[in-house]
Amino acid sequence: MYDVLHTERNVTQNDVKINAQGVQVYYGDTHAIKDVSVEIEDKTVTAFIGPSGCGKSTFLRCLNRMNDTIDICRVTGDIRIDGEDIYDKRVDPVQLRAKVGMVFQKPNPFPKSIYDNIAYGPRIHGMASSKAELDEIVERSLRRGAIWDEVKDRLQAPGTGLSGGQQQRLCIARAIATEPEVLLMDEPCSALDPIATAQVEELIDELRSNYSVVIVTHSMQQAARVSQKTAFFHLGNLVEYGDTGKIFTNPEDSRTESYITGRIG
């Protein structure tokens, strides 16, 4: 059904970047993530797929402790990045988030100029020592976010004035401007046209050489195209996790098979 076998795949074993064991997430009384254990590899693109409401975003937000900002949300279990427990008292979530960047499901540019949107992270973390250096970071990020050509003449225009798809690419560029080690992307292409989608996928593929990327997507084709590992979530459970090629051609669980062939969703 998907021509996954033609895609070049890197199936050599990488080091484990993120190790999550027995993760449970509750929103008040709602049990949103049920005992999920997963090992996410370094220099790999991992795709999270699953029907709407199954907890993909919730689990993704656990990985950079964005759930801390939701009062009613409670996370238990053990999540380690590079062997370090990120829910440990001594870990500063702010520092963690600089290391684990995130692109949100809905584009959320700041009410600032395009330039300032990108420069926001680098400025906060003191990544540029001069204006020229900052300019260079901004340009490089926008280029990698596949939006440079559209905005290069209006860097001082407000970021909120862009179209939905442009805003999403701006947010991607903003996230990579801080050079995170892990990039979490929650449906980054849901508002993009095929050309921009292809550009973002190219970017993801390029990021793989240095970073670990986790992408949530509703597009099976996209998961098959960009990822090496795929995790299938269903009703808060991690049903199946393994090499993308295997999941899409020869899934072990019947639920996975039904989902990727479009029978449940």
Binding site: M66, T69, M102, N108, F110, Y120, G121, I124, A175
Partner: peptide, 22 residues
């Protein structure tokens, strides 16, 4: 909107940086 704050926190900004700049 909370999404605006999330965007800032997601980039590793602290609370006061988020308040001041976003």
């Amino acid at each position: 909107p909370q999404a605006m704050r999330d965007g800032s926190y997601g980039l590793g900004a602290t609370k006061s940086e988020t308040i001041k700049q976003v």
